[in-house]
Design a protein around this nucleic acid. Structure first.
Length: 264
DNA sequence: AAGGAGCGCAACCGCTATGAA
DNA sequence: TTTCATAGCGGTTGCGCTCCT
C-alpha cells in the first residue's frame, strides 16, 4: 500500500506558475504566515499541491531571496562547502544568505560541475579524474581557483594536464592541483599565493588523527562523537555533550574535524 | 532564415526525517 | 511503541531560450 498523495492531483495545476497564482500565494503568506502547506492551497484559493506552493515560495517568492548571478565570493564559498558537505544543498544554502538549495544545486550542476570537469577534476570528489592513486593513499588535494590569471607553480599540475589550457571562456582558472602522500600529514606545505587555496585532506579514520586535529582547532583533547562531527550537536544522538562548540563559517567545528580546510 | 543541439532553470517526484496521536 | 501525516531534501525532468551550423 503506497503513501496517500499529498493532495488531490486530479484537481491541481502543474507546471509553470502564473502571475496570478504567485500573487495569491504571496498575499496569503503575508497575511497568515507560513503555516500548514497542505491546507494552504485551499485556504489561498490555489489549485496547487501544498508541496508545490512550498517550493514556489521557498525558491522564488520569498522576499529575502537574492536574485542574479553568483559572486566570486559565493563561488568560493560553494566550492569550499561542497568540499566538506558534498551534495547537502540545504546546508550549503544555509551559509549563503538569500540563496536557495535549488538555486545552488542548479548552479553547481550547470556551471561549477562543468568547470571542474573541463579542468579534469571530479566535481564529486574535487580530485583529478585521472588520479592514479587509490583513495587511501592520497592525503592532500589542493584545488585553487582564482579570478586572476596567474602562472601555475612549477610541478603543481600533476594529474591534471588540462589545468593550463587558456581557452576557457570565463575567468575561472585552476591554478594547481597538488597531491602528497600520507606521510605528509601535518607537515607545513608551501602555500600558493592565490586568492583562494582549498586544501582537502582526505585522511584515515578520524580517531587516528585526533591529536593533530585537536591541536589545529585549538580546543581541549575531548573526543567528540560521530553526531557532532556531522554537525548535529544538539541531537539526541550526541554522546559527548560538546554542545556549543566554536563555529567556523557558521558550521559547528565538529562537522569539519574529519576533513578540515584552510583558506588563504 | 530555419532547425537542431545544448544549456539553464523552474518545477516535479520519490524518498527520508520528524513529530504528534 | 507504532502508525500516520507532514515537512523537507536531493535527484531528475521538461520546457524555453540561445547558440551554432
Amino acid at each position: 500500500m503506497g503513501r496517500s498523495p499529498c493532495c488531490e492531483k486530479a484537481h491541481t495545476n502543474k507546471g509553470a506558475w502564473t502571475k496570478e497564482e504567485d500573487d495569491r500565494l504571496v498575499a496569503y503568506i503575508r497575511a497568515h504566515g507560513e503555516g500548514c502547506w497542505r491546507s494552504l492551497p485551499k485556504a489561498a484559493g490555489l489549485l496547487r499541491c501544498g508541496k508545490s506552493c512550498r517550493l514556489r515560495w521557498i525558491n522564488y517568492l520569498r522576499p529575502d531571496l537574492k536574485r542574479g548571478n553568483f559572486t566570486h565570493e559565493e563561488d568560493e564559498l560553494i566550492i569550499k562547502l561542497h568540499t566538506h558537505l558534498g551534495n547537502k544543498w540545504s546546508l550549503i544554502a544555509g551559509r549563503l544568505p538569500g540563496r536557495t538549495d535549488n538555486e545552488i544545486k542548479n548552479y553547481w550542476n550547470t556551471h561549477m560541475r562543468r568547470k571542474f570537469t573541463s579542468h579534469g577534476i571530479d566535481p564529486a570528489t574535487h580530485r583529478p579524474t585521472n588520479d592514479q592513486h587509490s583513495s587511501h593513499d592520497i592525503s592532500v588535494t589542493s584545488i585553487s581557483f582564482s579570478s586572476v590569471a596567474a602562472p601555475a607553480p612549477e610541478g603543481s599540475s600533476s594529474g591534471s594536464g588540462s589545468c593550463h589550457q587558456q581557452e576557457e571562456k570565463d575567468d575561472m582558472k585552476v591554478i594547481g592541483v597538488d597531491m602528497k602522500l600520507d606521510e605528509k600529514i601535518g607537515q607545513d606545505v608551501e602555500p600558493y599565493s592565490h586568492d583562494l587555496n582549498l586544501e582537502l585532506r582526505i585522511s584515515p579514520p578520524y580517531q587516528l588523527r585526533q591529536h593533530h586535529l585537536m591541536k589545529s582547532v585549538g580546543k581541549s583533547n575531548r573526543l567528540i562523537c560521530f553526531a557532532c562531527r556531522l554537525g548535529v550537536q544538539n541531537s539526541k544522538e550526541c554522546r559527548c555533550r560538546c554542545n556549543g562548540r566554536t563555529h567556523f563559517l557558521g558550521l559547528k567545528t565538529g562537522a569539519l574535524d574529519c576533513r578540515y580546510m584552510e583558506t588563504k
